[in-house]
């Protein structure tokens, strides 16, 4: 039982939607490379832009397998990969806010994220949910013994915010891996976010018009935002239909798409707000052409819990699956 949670190659492409989504992602990267190559050959783009485009495509060619491969291999790897993503996001956030200079709070946040990963691996929803308030309790008390009350609220609030975003929020994406349909569902969520991002960029560039929230993010337009909502709605209506069939009515699937499109953009705007408040441009420089890990994955922070509870309410996740795989006897 445990072993099949790690190694389930037979199940990798068992669902046709998984195969279509993975094939589609590979095709998009290959097509993008060809377009850049042709444009560069025809001297339609300058060398600087060409280099920038290659850098971004190359980064995508690393990001896509980093997401897809763990999801394909087995649910345990998907949960561990989401946990690792949460830790990387926390590291960038802590360095950007200065919270990394408070080791007691940092250790509490990291421990909270690791316990959430364990609860997801164990498929123990009760513990998973219990960790939300308990994690807050531990972070709140972490720095009290230092007898250093100045800036207590700031470091505690920064820690709680981080735990709720990178542990609890992202953790819901990992918990989905306890469902037999987790491969197409997780890939649908991640790719819907990508579709939303790309559509916001392209419709914004094509149509232009008034800015959305210029003080927060000067490049986003209202037209781009609506384009992203439309694209996410169409993509999710089709994909969720192929995954769930009649279990979700068309309006319910469209609403799921709207939910993902809205939360993805709000996650983006949330990170923009954080960066503006800190007066920094990027959260890091780990991914060439993208900035930090958070700059790329910010949208998933808000999308994951929203999608989880929407689908959980309408259909359920992992309902008939064995629970407490590690702690149960």
């Amino acid at each position: 039982m445990i072993a099949s949670r790690f190694w389930d190659f037979a199940g990798a492409f068992a669902h046709p939607v998984t195969a279509v989504l993975v094939g589609g992602a590979v095709a998009v990267i290959v097509a993008a490379s060809l377009v850049i190559f042709v444009l560069a050959r025809a001297r339609k783009v300058g060398p600087a832009l060409e280099k920038e485009l290659w850098l971004r495509t190359f980064s995508w060619a690393l990001i896509v397998p980093a997401i897809v491969v763990p999801v394909l291999i087995g649910p345990a790897w998907a949960i561990l990969a989401v946990g690792a993503l949460g830790l990387l996001c926390y590291q960038e956030y802590a360095r950007a806010t200065g919270l990394f200079r408070e080791p007691a709070v940092s250790v509490a946040v990291v421990a909270g994220i690791l316990f959430l990963v364990f609860a997801a691996l164990d498929h123990w929803y009760g513990f998973f949910v219990a960790l939300f308030p308990l994690g807050v309790v531990v972070i709140a008390i972490a720095s009290i013994p230092q007898d250093r009350p100045e800036h207590y609220i700031q470091r505690t609030a920064l820690g709680v915010f981080a735990f709720l975003l990178f542990g609890v929020g992202l953790g819901h994406l990992g918990f989905i891996a306890n469902d037999p349909l987790y491969r197409p569902v997780i890939l649908m969520i991640v790719f819907a976010v990508a579709v939303s991002d790309v559509s916001a960029f392209t419709t914004g560039k094509l149509i232009g018009g008034p800015k959305l929230l210029p003080a927060t993010s000067p490049n986003k337009t209202i037209s781009g935002s609506l384009g992203a909502l439309a694209a996410a709605t169409v993509f999710v209506s089709l994909t969720a239909g192929a995954i769930y069939g009649d279990a979700l009515a068309l309006w319910q699937r469209a609403l799921l798409g709207l939910l993902i499109g809205a939360c993805a953009q709000l996650g983006d705007l949330m990170l923009s707000s954080i960066k503006r408040d800190l007066h920094i441009k990027d959260m890091g420089a780990v991914i060439p052409g993208h900035g930090g890990v958070l700059d790329r994955f910010n949208s998933l922070l808000l999308v994951s819990p929203a999608v989880f509870h929407y689908v959980h309410y309408l259909i359920g996740f992992g309902e008939a699956q064995p629970i407490r795989l590690i702690t149960g006897s």
Binding site: Q91, A94, R95, A96, T97, G98, F100, R101, P103, S106, V107, V110, Q154, D277, L278, I280, K281, D282, G284, A285, V286
Partner: peptide, 30 residues
């Protein structure tokens, strides 16, 4: 206002960070 003090070596690539005189170790380094 809260006072934020981002890491002095923020915005460097991992390779640049290793060699930076401004490097500040986080939890992994500690």
């Amino acid at each position: 206002d809260w006072r934020f003090k981002p890491a002095a070596d923020l915005g460097l690539t991992p390779a640049q960070r290793l060699r930076s005189l401004q490097r500040e170790a986080g939890l992994p380094g500690a």
